[in-house]
Design a protein around this nucleic acid. Structure first.
Lengths: 145, 145
DNA sequence: CCCAATTAGTTGACTAAATCAACCAACACG
DNA sequence: CGTGTTGGTTGATTTAGTCAACTAATTGGG
């Protein structure tokens, strides 16, 4: 029997999501997973636009726009016009957003540590490398033109 | 900066889901991902009950029940009372269900091969092992009692 | 300069996926 | 018995994600 890698992937992502959600609720963070990923995305690329994030994460731009709207409503991010190209909106974290991003990073680090428990560091690195290689494989064959 | 393993996981799962969906549509399979996973689950454990599947996949039993209802409506599975315990419903694939399971396995194998392209077999195996170990880590610390 | 094509963003409508909670029927077993 | 447990069903709701139509701003060619 060949490895049911899809099933494993699915279960892993769900176990991870559950662990993260637990961590978030015990840390008193009220956002959804997608919102949290947005915060992280903006935090790690401070001049990102909605489009840039949509492309980087391969997500629908409409989906992204809605997340941004919500987060702006929570005063976690601001949306300012780009100085030279007024189509763009520069996304920035507010002070509250930054504080939240820090706490998110802590929770995530803790969950990551729990997930990686008893597993040697090199294996974890290899795991991430393989995952990235797989993503590249899948995406390169998706649009073969 | 430690590896953003959660983000990688998320992107990998989505890339995989997209690849699978492409494969399914070109193969003329009309089911959703969750329904397909159900078919596979029943195929690999022919005497499974809804509860058994819910437990094995850690999914909500209500969710499972709905999927089963849909699949029964498509005449892909049957739901028969258990001979000695009439609470159970024995889930079986119909002939159409079996045929579909075979085609699903083909599509999945093809997508798996695409995903694993240029990656040595031992690495893939290691990848799955690590994923399983991570799932175990996450779930054991989820309910520490 | 003007028009066409492109790009960023917004919005509406929709589907899929998953969770929570309430509920019923059948069973186990003291 | 009857009390608690287990398997299953259903309703309501939330989160995620997709597709399509649309506006506004920019760019580049003639």
């Amino acid at each position: 029997m060949h490895t049911p890698i899809g099933e494993t992937l699915h279960r892993l992502l769900h176990a991870y999501k559950r662990a993260m959600r637990d961590g978030y609720t015990t840390a008193g963070i009220e956002l959804t997973g997608a919102q949290i990923r947005m915060i992280k995305g903006i935090a790690s690329d401070p001049d990102a636009s909605a489009q840039a994030i949509a492309k980087r994460t391969r997500q629908d731009k409409g989906h992204i726009a809605r997340l941004i709207k919500d987060l702006e409503g929570e005063d976690l991010i601001t949306r300012r016009p780009h100085p030279s190209d007024s189509r763009y909106r520069q996304l920035k974290l507010t002070a509250a957003g930054h504080a939240l991003a820090t706490r998110i990073a802590e929770v995530e680090a803790e969950a990551g540590a729990r997930m990686a428990r008893h597993l040697p560091d090199p294996d974890i690195e290899r795991f991430v490398e393989l995952a990235e290689a797989m993503i590249a494989n899948l995406e390169s064959s998706e649009n073969p033109l």
